[in-house]
Amino acid sequence: MSADPARQNGGRVDLQLIASMIEPGSRVLDVGSGDGELLRLLNATREVDCRGIEISQKGVNAGVAQGLSVVQGDADKDLVNYPTKGFDYVILSQTLQATRAPQKVVRELVRIGRRAIISFPNFAHWRVRARILFTGQMPVTPTLPFQWYETPNIHLCSIDDFVNMTKGMGVTIEKFIALDWHGKVSMTNNTPALANLLAAQALFLLRED
C-alpha cells in the first residue's frame, strides 16, 4: 500500500482541521495524544496552552522528552479528575472507538471543555460495507489498519450511530465535517445523511447545552 492517503504534507488531515478550529490563546486538552502529533502542531501553529493525556507510558515519555505536557492516563478512568469547563477545547481524535464506555467519555469531554472536538473513522463507509459484504471479513483499511484479533478499536461506530448517541445527551453539534477516503473535506453540514455512506472519517464540534 502506498502512503497513507489520509496524510497530507506529512500530517494527518483531521489533525490539521482540528487545529484550524481552535481559537488562538485557548487552553486545550488532547485526550489520547499518542505520539504528540497534534500537540506539536498546536504548539507550532496556534498560540495555545495545550496538554495531553495518553494511555501508553512510552508515548507519554516520548512526548515529555520533546517538551510536550503529557500525563499518563486513561480516557475511561481519569477524565473524572478534571474540573468542569477547565479547558476551552477538549479533543478526542481517533480514540473514541478505543474507549470502553464511549458515551460516558463524550459526557466527560463536553463537561470538561467549553467545546469538544471528536474525530473517528466511519464504520459505515461504503468500502467498509463492501469488504464485509463481499469478503465476509472484518475490514482492514487505512483508517482501521488492524486485524480484528489485535485491534484496540472495541467500539467502532458509524456517523449515524454517533449522532444517534448524542441525542438526549444534552449536547449540540455545532459543526460536522466529513473526510473522504483521501482525507479531503467532502461534506460539512449538520444533517450527515449521505456522509454516513461516503465519509471515511468524521469530525464533530460539540458543546454542552
Binding site: 496538554r51 507510558q57 474540573p83 479547558f87
Partner: peptide, 18 residues
C-alpha cells in the same frame, strides 16, 4: 499528585520510568 494537578487544570507532565 498528578490527579490533583489535573483537577486544578494545572500544566503538568507525568512520566513513570521503567
Amino acid at each position: 499528585i498528578v490527579q490533583a494537578l489535573n483537577a486544578a487544570a494545572a500544566n503538568v507532565s507525568f512520566v513513570e520510568i521503567e
